[in-house]
């Protein structure tokens, strides 16, 4: 049974059709790439999966749960986390706090317990603190734990965004153009990182990316969107030789 199953997903912004009849079956552990020119509807698909928008039509099932109509925070608690195309960290908060916020849904103590520093609050907070620092340590951000997020260099901000998503303890991770604005060296490092977290955290991943190197290098399967339509689907090799894709997308890139 697929972990994520999307059927006939369609979304309109007013009269504009951003996504049309998008289908996907993703097995646990799979890494799927979504590519396509600007405005093809890639990020909209992420926004629909994570509940930011409610689809005009279609079904999204994750691990047996129907996601349509659920709030974003409920969907995250079911095990889907994401990053953003433009970095959306909590800029004025510390790196550690950025990661700890992702533990919100798993907080078991209630507000009064926090205000009166009850034992269960203290225990749980200590736990969260340690786990968050552990994750930062794994991601190579422990030294910057008390920095304000906006003071991190760009590459580390990207890394922190991924760390924050991982702190949600997802089964499915949605990465929205993680290589945007990176130089070739950073991109190579990022590809390593994605491979590594995939293994380490046993993740299923969907990756939106403009950098063909990244998508072709690490994805098992690729979907190509153009004007909201799925115009091709297949392995990197198949996509690279698909004439419609070359016309719509790679053609421009190649020149």
């Amino acid at each position: 049974m697929p972990l994520l199953r999307i059927r006939g997903l369609t979304h309109f912004f007013g009269g504009l059709r951003a996504v049309h009849d998008f289908n996907l079956d993703q097995e646990p552990g799979e890494l799927i790439g979504i590519i396509g020119p600007n405005g093809a509807g890639k990020t909209t698909v992420f926004n629909l999966i994570t509940g930011v928008y409610r689809p005009t039509e279609g079904e999204i099932f994750f691990n047996g749960h129907n996601l349509v109509g659920k709030r974003p925070d409920q969907i995250v608690s079911l095990g889907i986390a994401r990053t953003f195309q433009t970095i959306r960290l909590f800029k004025n908060l510390s790196v550690l706090d950025n990661v700890r916020i992702a533990h919100f849904a798993r907080t078991r103590y209630e507000v009064p317990a926090a205000m009166f520093r009850m034992p269960n609050y203290l225990r749980e907070e200590a736990e969260v603190r340690e786990r968050a620092l552990e994750l930062l340590d794994l991601m190579g951000l422990a030294d910057q734990a008390e920095w304000v997020a906006s003071s991190l260099p760009y590459g580390l901000q990207r890394r922190l965004e991924i760390a924050r998503a991982l702190a949600c303890e997802p089964r499915l991770l949605l990465l929205d153009e993680p290589a945007a604005g990176m130089n070739p060296g950073e991109i190579a490092e990022l590809m390593e990182l994605i491979r590594w977290i995939r293994q380490q955290f046993d993740l299923t991943i969907i990756l939106i990316e403009h950098q063909m190197r990244v998508v072709m290098g690490i994805c098992e399967r690729i979907k190509v969107l153009d004007f909201g339509e799925t115009i091709a689907e297949g392995t990197p090799a198949e996509i690279q030789s698909n004439p419609r894709v070359i016309e719509a997308y790679l053609g421009e890139e190649a020149i």
């Binding site: 994401r82 909590f90 919100f104």
Partner: peptide, 15 residues
């Protein structure tokens, strides 16, 4: 605090 910083991002990290 996360609502002050970015409400949508905050709901997308489970708040």
């Amino acid at each position: 605090l996360s609502i002050r910083e970015d409400e949508i991002a905050s709901s997308l990290v489970s708040v």
